[in-house]
């Protein structure tokens, strides 16, 4: 299935967000996620089913002012 990860087209086989994150290389990482502009907490990732064309944002701590 084709999704958008942080603005770039990506192919994932997992249909569930928690599994897709592992597939995309985020296993165990300190990241926050949003799908189509809506926050998806860690506890909800296992139930969140991804669909074709979903926009996934994966954010991590960074420098800020």
């Amino acid at each position: 299935m084709k999704i958008e990860l942080n603005g770039e087209a990506r192919e994932v086989s997992a249909g569930q967000l928690a599994e897709a994150l592992v597939e995309l290389g985020y296993g165990g990482a300190t990241v926050a996620t949003a799908v189509n502009g809506a926050f998806v907490p860690v506890a909800a990732r296992a139930e969140r089913i991804l669909s074709e064309g979903d926009r996934l944002e994966v954010l991590a701590p960074r420098q800020g002012g």
Binding site: G7, G25, Y26, A29, V31, E57, L59, A60, P61, R62
Partner: peptide, 16 residues
């Protein structure tokens, strides 16, 4: 601090 996009397998966030 802030949040920014992290690439799969990236370590920038963890390190910071």
């Amino acid at each position: 601090v802030s949040l920014r996009r992290e690439a799969g397998g990236g370590r920038a966030g963890e390190d910071f």
